[in-house]
Design a binder for these strands. Structure first.
Lengths: 148, 148
DNA sequence: TACTTTTATATCGTGAACGATATAATCGAA
DNA sequence: TTCGATTATATCGTTCACGATATAAAAGTA
């Protein structure tokens, strides 16, 4: 078995980052037909998932959860506001913060889109439950590596 | 231990796709300071890696290797042409194909950027070699799932 | 050969991502 | 209290990504 030090890292197949990048896009693409029924993009769906767990949060709460900055989230959330999924209001305690809240339409999507994750998992039928769990753990460990 | 069927998939932390998405972006961000020395973006670097292994290939070869379509690759490669990294020429055997070749500048980057991957791996210092190998394998298995 | 189909790129429009920077509110220290 | 530093968003510009569609060449077929 080759040691890590001997591997030619300039080969695409040996990169760790490339399969991450590819897998991420492939799975996002799998979400698309499922989310299309609700006129949602994947990042918009992520914002909803955060809000379904904790409603009425400042933008920087979304930022921390999703690892996205205001330059991405501000326009994204504004589009969701136009779609009547969320509302944005300045916090009275701290005028710098903008509180994002679910509208009724945004809340009702939680039930309506309930089957999306299970429908998605069907795509991983060639991987065992153990493998999926392990992958999940390793990815979170990797992410934790960057939160010093 | 919870069975997969019992997990609440509508919670962000239980999603497999989200850590993939997050990890991919986090690592791409790690590449950026390293690639900045060469004025490269990460997708441009990926194109170079493919060409370093096999030069003068049609666009659809890049497409297959990187899982990117012509609507992404055409403008991306054109920018690389403007940067004098590659040349584009219609194939004489098949006028539909565009052959992408490295310029001298593009070739010389292979040596100049040699240390980029090893510099990047330094960011994974909290993960063992075994874990990284395992992650690599699982990701390729996942990707393989989508190549029916 | 004439036609349909397939294949390889390209174009267009939209929505992320993100570096750099701006703006305004709050905090903190002298 | 005053003013510099920090914090929370927002704006701008560039580069992906990708669905939908267009175009032209090549391949297949009657």
């Amino acid at each position: 078995m080759k040691e890590l030090q001997e591997v030619d890292f300039q080969k695409l197949d040996n990169q760790l980052c490339f399969p991450l990048y590819a897998a991420s896009r492939l799975i996002t693409k799998c979400y698309q037909p499922l989310l299309k029924d609700f006129e949602l993009t994947y990042p918009q769906y992520l914002v909803l998932m955060v809000l379904w767990e904790q409603d009425k949060v400042p933008l920087n709460y979304l930022s921390e959860k999703l690892y996205l900055q205001s330059n991405t989230l501000t326009p994204l959330v504004k589009r969701m506001e136009e779609m009547q999924l969320v509302t944005r209001q300045r916090s009275k305690e701290d005028e710098r913060s903008v509180l994002i809240s679910l509208t009724e339409k945004g809340q009702s999507l939680k039930c309506e889109a309930k089957e999306v994750p299970t429908q998605l998992v069907a795509n991983f039928d060639k991987m065992t439950t153990e493998e999926l769990k392990l992958l999940h753990q390793l990815l979170y460990k990797l992410i934790g590596n960057f939160e010093e």
